[in-house]
C-alpha cells in the first residue's frame, strides 16, 4: 500500500464505513495494517465514519489493546482480575514490571481476566496464555528476551 498515513487510514476505515458499529473493527484493522493507532488518525477516522474526533479518542483510549506507537518485540499481559488477584496476580504484575523495566523491547500491560481463572495467576507472553505462573516459569519462558 502506498500514500501518506492519512490516505492509508482513510482507505482502511472506508472499508468499514457501511458496517453497523464500524468503529471497533476499523480500529483493529488500522492497528493490524499500520502497527498502531496514531493520535492524528482520529480526525481521519472520525471524518470517514461521521463521528466526532472525541468519539474516536474515547474509544481508542478505553481499550488497553489499542496502542499509539509501534509494538515492542515482546509483550507480557498480566491478568489483574479478582481470581488471579487472590492467588498473587498483583505480585506477578509488579515483578514483571521490574524484571523488564530495563529492556526496551518488552511491554508489560495489565489485562482484566483472560478467562483462565481456575489456573491463576495468568498472563499472556507474546500472545500465548500461561497459567500458574511463578517467577521461575516467567524466567524460563522469557529466556533470551533482552
Amino acid at each position: 500500500m502506498t500514500g501518506t498515513r492519512d490516505e492509508r487510514v482513510r482507505e482502511i476505515v472506508t472499508r468499514y464505513a457501511a458496517h453497523r458499529g464500524p468503529l471497533l473493527p476499523a480500529l483493529h484493522a488500522v492497528q493490524e495494517d499500520l502497527g498502531w493507532i496514531d493520535r492524528d488518525d482520529a480526525a481521519v477516522i472520525a471524518d470517514v465514519l461521521n463521528l466526532s474526533k472525541a468519539d474516536v479518542h474515547g474509544v481508542v483510549t478505553f481499550y488497553a489493546d489499542f496502542r499509539d506507537a509501534a509494538a515492542t518485540r515482546h509483550t507480557v499481559s498480566v491478568c489483574r482480575g479478582e481470581a488471579c488477584q487472590a492467588v498473587g496476580g498483583q505480585e506477578l504484575y509488579e515483578r514483571s514490571v521490574s524484571r523488564f523495566a530495563t529492556i526496551d523491547d518488552v511491554t508489560v500491560t495489565e489485562v482484566f481476566c483472560l478467562g483462565n481463572c481456575a489456573l491463576g495467576p495468568s498472563a499472556q507472553l507474546d500472545g500465548r496464555l500461561h497459567g500458574r505462573l511463578s517467577d521461575d516459569r516467567v524466567s524460563a519462558l522469557t529466556q533470551g528476551w533482552s
Binding site: 482520529a42 474526533k53 479518542h57 474515547g58
Partner: peptide, 20 residues
C-alpha cells in the same frame, strides 16, 4: 449535538477530555 467531549481511559484513569 457537537459530541466534542468524551471520557478517555478507564477506571481510575478516566478523564473528561475534549478529544485529547
Amino acid at each position: 449535538g457537537t459530541f466534542a467531549l468524551t471520557v478517555a481511559g478507564r477506571g481510575f484513569d478516566s478523564r473528561i477530555t475534549p478529544g485529547g
